[in-house]
Design a binder for these strands. Sequence first.
RNA 1: GUGGAUUUGGUGUAGUUGGUUAACACGUCGGAUUGUGGUUCCGAAGAUCAAGGGUUCGAAUCCCUUACUCCACC
Length: 375
Amino acid sequence: MAEAITYELLHVDKNSGARRGVVHTPHGDIQTPIFMPVGTQATVKSMSPEELKEDVKAQIILANTYHLYLRPGHDLVKEAGGLHNFMNWDRPILTDSGGFQVFSLSGLRKITEEGVKFSSHLDGSKHLFTPEKVMEIEEALGADIIMAFDECCPYPSDYKYTEKSMYRTTRWAGRCKEAHKTTNQGLFGIIQGGFYKDLRKISAEDLIAMDFPGYAIGGISVGEPKEEFLDILRYTTPLMPENKPRYLMGVGTPDYLIEAALAGIDMCDCVLPTRLARHGTALTSKGKLVIRNATYERDWGKLDDECDCYTCKNYSRAYIRHLVKTNEILGIRLISLHNLRFLTRLMEQVREAIEQDNLLEFREEFYQKYGYEIM
RNA sequence: GUGGAUUUGGUGUAGUUGGUUAACACGUCGGAUUGUGGUUCCGAAGAUCAAGGGUUCGAAUCCCUUACUCCACC
């Protein structure tokens, strides 16, 4: 039986570990390395699927198991014909497992070997997520790529707890694989182990032995210093199979995306572009731009001179600042569209650079303009 | 004209048995944001308390004069 998700390696940058590839899914191919916009509740906040396709040029989006389970309920989404039909998005979708909510809802949950008991953030009602339950939900949602149920440890976590948690996440991955029945969805395993290399190695080896069609690195980019992020990223990525997609979860900022690609990562996702947009900050080739600042009051230029997006084609900083200051919805939409396009375009440039074996030079130029330092 | 009330950062307000750097909200200015708990979080600037005079060790607070605004009456 053919795998739902397969990876095709096109080219490896001769001067770095970066790889240019294609992930084949039931809803089409995605060109990698790629940035995936997050649409937690079956919508990338403020963006229509048409805008995501035509303006942002997104190839795949994320949705969230935990949120959609609570509302509207996975049974309802299934009844609608799955997420693709429900939200009118015909390209690939990836669902996160709810494992991150185990981390972000700390205080409202209890972790045991069986699974995680949650209190809903909406009404306090009690729920139990087990690997089996999460598979049931993700299968009902119908995404192309589904993530195993894991635990993302906070930073910092001590060795003993991280070790215990990592082994449990591995056991949960086994139960997910056992419970996973659909043939048109690819189940990815998630490597944990916090900031301890020996644990990362064990996690990677044990998961690889289970033969998932793709692997993710979880549990980094959780508030640690950049050196530690890079250290674990550069250590863990080479442990992952070369013939399968490599997904770094929860990243991120432009520099992290470039570093991920350099390390050999294929896929990243992050809420940052849309969250920044809602808070009035734009990403530009010259760094972050807090559009509500007074200095842009009479700035008739575009958000980013180099950007080709709909927002930059049509609207000035002064106008967007006005929209943000007056809390107008269009401000959020225009900046969201721009920020998302900024990152998808960044990854287009990264892919091109890999094809030409010069991602390292691209990083240097990008960092210099943006104001980052190479570490 | 008479009587009463009011006047505190840009705006709206809190602040009396007189007691160190006058509080709050909004606004302004700036920062944050990394597998989204959907207008969030953090910080800063900004008031000689209408003006002048008086009482007092000490006044936004008590007294006097003037001005301003509002209400009522003639």
